Simulated scan of single mutants.
Amino acid sequence: MRIRPVGAHALLLDCTASADVPVPALVEAWRAELWRRRTQGELIAAEIVPAANTVLLDGLPDSVATAELLSRWARTVTAAVEGEDATGRVTADAEVVVPVDFDGPDLPTVAEHWGVDVPAVLRRLTDTRFRVAFCGFAPGFPYLTGLPAELALPRLATPRPRVPAGSVALAGPYAGIYPGASPGGWLLVGRTDLVLFDVHADPPARLGPGAQVRMAAA
Score class of each variant (00 low, 15 high):
Phe141Trp: 03
Phe141Glu: 00
Ala181Lys: 01
Tyr174Pro: 02
Leu147Cys: 11
Thr16Ile: 13
Ile177Gly: 01
Glu33Gly: 06
Arg160Pro: 02
Leu56Pro: 04
Ile44His: 05
Gly210Phe: 08
Thr54Asn: 10
Val90Leu: 14
Asp58Ser: 12
Ala65Arg: 15
Gly41Val: 13
Pro5Ala: 12
Pro183Ser: 13
Asp101His: 06
Arg214Asn: 01
Ala79Gly: 05
Arg89Leu: 13
Pro119His: 06
Gly59Ile: 10
Pro139His: 08
Ala45Gly: 08
Pro159Asp: 08
Leu57His: 00
Val163Gln: 09
Gly136Met: 05
Trp35Cys: 14
Arg129Met: 11
Gly172Glu: 04
Val27Ile: 06
Leu70Phe: 03
Asp127Pro: 03
Thr109Asn: 09
Gly184Ser: 08
Tyr174Phe: 13
Pro209Met: 06
Ala149Glu: 12
Pro179Met: 10
Trp186Gly: 03
Ser18Ala: 12
Ala46Leu: 10
Arg89Tyr: 05
Val195Gln: 06
Ala149Arg: 14
Leu12Glu: 09
His9Leu: 11
Ala52Gly: 06
Gln212Thr: 14
Pro179Arg: 09
Arg72His: 13
Pro161Met: 14
Trp35Arg: 13
Ser167Phe: 00
Pro99Val: 04
Ala79Leu: 11
Arg37Ser: 09
Val98Ser: 02
His113Gly: 05
Val97Glu: 04
Ser167Val: 05
Ala216Gln: 15
Phe134Met: 07
Ala25Met: 06
Gly185Asn: 06
Pro203Arg: 08
Thr39Leu: 11
Gln212Val: 14
Ala51Phe: 05
Asp93Leu: 15
Pro105Gly: 09
Pro108Gly: 10
Glu33Val: 11
Val98Lys: 03
Leu187Ile: 04
Arg37Gln: 13
Thr54Lys: 07
Ala171Gln: 07
His113Pro: 02
Gly208Ser: 11
Pro173Gln: 06
Pro161Ile: 14
Glu84Ala: 09
Pro179Gly: 14
Pro159Met: 07
Glu95Met: 08
Glu84Cys: 06
Val97Gly: 04
Trp114Glu: 12
Ala46Ile: 07
Asp93Phe: 03
Arg162Ala: 14
Trp114Leu: 14
Pro5Gly: 08
Ser18Asn: 11
Gln212Pro: 02
Ala17Ser: 11
Ala67Val: 11
Pro50Tyr: 10
Pro61Glu: 03
Ala10Leu: 14
